[in-house]
Design a protein around this nucleic acid. Structure first.
Lengths: 233, 233
DNA sequence: GCGCGTGTTTGTCAAAGCGCAAACTCGCCT
DNA sequence: AGGCGAGTTTGCGCTTTGACAAACACGCGC
């Protein structure tokens, strides 16, 4: 008995509609762990033995190509499942997960996946919906990379980050975790140089305010116009 | 009773391990339909009422952006599920499906999804594995678009097509359905002009032989070297 | 057998954005 | 307090590839 309290996960989309007993059962084989900023929760190619749920913090999911290029597949927010290789019938992780800030995550042994899915069909449905949603997002990303220029892609990426992990700041919305130019470049398939140049240009135009590992969107509407490749109406 | 014979689907990965009675039950509510080359089986944004399985032919899954840009998300091969919006908890199709050649496909009403999944857990597992695999592929595509040049991307795309839908020809492996330069461009996020130029160059080098809506890979190994951005060893 | 349309080839030009290089600056650690 | 290093900025040249344009060719239908 790890003594995890059901209030940890009550209210999360993934477990919606589950009774208190159900939640207790879900937690029965879960282990909670803290992951320091910058540490790897799991590693691309490693044998997948657990699946995870992020309780607090932000996680970067990174794929590295054979040639050593890194691409950030997505950021995981609080309350989301991640590392669910088991749900896709995989035995290894297709990407690495790195804590963008200090994080707390639950981990279940993979064996529990089938179990929980059988016991609580709603959990299974929600999980698969998550995967479906990620497939949609990823395909949308392909679309973006096929049809948009770098400037629009970066604008879209920032808007998405702000939407998913925005925190109200004095003069706009700040992305809630440290993020470098390099990170943004790896999200959008460009270079940190180009990102730096564009952020500088946008800062001049009053769309963003950015600094070391920090981005504040000060004019979301203006940025949306950039994302749509139009000038301010 | 549509009278569909279980041998239609026996042997398919999706239904592996199901008994004869199970296969009959699976087919009970399926309808088979022929789709002429070029016709749409379903349309992006339309209400998803069915899910499908391709019995014969090849299908192009196409996404169109608000600005009218088209991207080919994937080709569906014989025996594969497609249009499984229901599995991702979607009510509309995120893309259109167009018959690349004359096709025959089974269609089930979405209601049957939950039903079949409950009755035959192996079917559910396999279906979700399909979605997982597609997520992987799509993420691999993002990776490719982020890190590779056009030439490598096109080479990779051709190699994939050949692997998935290659038919042995006199002097190499031919892609088993009509495919235009424009199609290849839409798969790789480039323009038909660039594709045309590259195919011409490759033809000179003896890697491919291509014509109107036709591509034959005559030197798969050589093309692999191009895909890896190396010269022949 | 001819004409037309769709698909393909090829040329020229322009520019987006990458590679390379160097300087700078902010925080953090000692 | 100072130095160090990670992260950032910026300049410059150049390659890749997209945009535009025009001619061409193959095959189908009449």
């Amino acid at each position: 008995m790890t003594g995890l309290d059901r209030t940890l996960i009550a209210g999360l989309e993934t477990f919606r509609g589950l009774s208190d007993q159900a939640l207790d059962r879900v937690l029965a084989y879960a282990r909670s762990a803290r992951h320091a900023k910058g540490s790897e929760i799991f590693s691309q190619g490693a044998e997948a033995e657990n699946f995870y749920l992020l309780l607090s913090g932000h996680i970067r999911v990174v794929r590295t190509s054979p040639e050593g290029h890194q691409v950030i597949a997505r950021y995981i927010n609080e309350g989301e499942l991640f590392g669910i290789a088991v749900a896709m019938g995989r035995t290894t992780f297709p990407a690495s997960a790195v804590a963008a800030v200090d994080c707390v995550a639950l981990a279940w042994p993979n064996r529990e996946w089938a179990e929980l899915q059988t016991l609580f069909p709603a959990f299974g449905a929600s999980a698969y919906q998550t995967i479906g949603a990620r497939l949609q997002e990823t395909q949308a990303q392909v679309m973006e990379m096929s049809t948009e220029q770098v400037e629009q892609r970066i604008a879209h990426a920032l808007l998405r980050l702000v939407k998913q992990a925005g925190r109200k700041a004095a003069d706009g919305i700040e992305i809630d975790f440290p993020i470098t130019r390099q990170d943004i470049a790896e999200m959008t398939g460009t270079t940190l140089h180009t990102v730096s140049r564009l952020l500088s240009a946008w800062e001049q135009r009053g769309l963003v305010r950015s600094g070391r590992q920090k981005v504040v969107v000060t004019d979301a509407h203006g940025l949306m116009l950039v994302a749509e490749h139009r000038r301010r109406d």
